[in-house]
């Protein structure tokens, strides 16, 4: 194992080469907000919350997909980054129809948490109030596109862990939405094994178990890491 030494927020750190800035920061207890990152599936660098400043690079880089390098000097929480993160979360709130009070994921939502973390007390941007639908065709689960932030965690977990690739993204820009199968009702997609990993992977209340109501979606975020650990290291206890 080779080791790289770097600085995060002025703190000297030695870490295993090949790790991402996000991994290393986590190990060192340095918080970096994320939304599209999910332990166990490939990172895509889409939500831009984990952007960090690296000395000598004039571009902000996502911590989740940027490998650590020797002598790197990383800043994770400058005023500029704080402002951009807050704007990012504000944009997300303005983009969908996120009404926390009656959402299944209320009190257990990563978007809600992100808003608190970045100190968002309101969004400066005009709400877009898109007319998005719901799909209740699956016997056990449902997807409410109003609450979707297009993090694609469901897409990746279904493809990479379950191997079913039920989910993907349709359309582009603001019109993007998560599709099941060949843009069919979820309940008609034969590939779906009803494993429920997408429910646990979803950071908001977009994908949920039918029958759950306000603030009842507790989710089991650790299940995924457990499953991967179990498969890779044959450790089947939790």
């Amino acid at each position: 194992m080779s080791v790289k030494t770097l600085k995060i927020n002025g703190q000297d750190i030695a870490a295993e080469a090949g790790k991402s800035i996000l991994q290393v920061a986590k190990e060192e207890g340095i918080p970096i907000p994320t939304l599209c990152h999910l332990e166990g599936v490939t990172d895509v660098g889409a939500c831009r919350l984990c952007l960090v400043e690296i000395k000598g690079i004039n571009k902000l880089l996502p911590a989740c997909v940027t490998e650590i390098g020797e002598g790197m000097e990383v800043e994770t929480n400058t005023p500029r980054l704080q402002e951009y993160r807050r704007m990012t979360v504000e944009l997300l709130f303005a983009e969908g129809n996120h009404m926390c009070s009656f959402c299944v994921a209320n009190n257990n939502c990563e978007l809600q948490d992100a808003a608190i973390e970045v100190g968002m007390d309101h969004t400066r941007f005009d709400y877009r109030f898109p007319d998005r639908g719901m799909d209740l065709s699956h016997p056990e689960f449902a997807i409410d596109h109003n609450r979707c932030i297009l993090c694609t965690r469901c897409v990746r977990v279904c493809d990479e862990i379950e191997g079913a690739h039920v989910w993907d993204v349709g359309q582009r820009g603001e019109q993007c939405y998560i599709i099941s199968g060949l843009d069919q009702p979820w309940g008609e997609v034969d590939a779906c094994t009803s494993c429920g990993k997408c429910v646990d992977a979803c950071p908001t209340g977009a994908i949920f178990r039918q029958g759950t109501t306000t603030a009842e979606k507790l989710g089991d975020r650790a299940k995924l890491s457990f499953l991967i650990n179990a498969r890779e290291k044959q450790e089947w206890t939790r």
Partner: peptide, 17 residues
């Protein structure tokens, strides 16, 4: 905004705003 792929938030939602 029409041509944004929609993957990252600043481009997808920022151009709309």
């Amino acid at each position: 905004r029409e041509e944004s792929c929609g993957k990252c938030i600043p481009c997808r939602a920022g151009t709309e705003q």
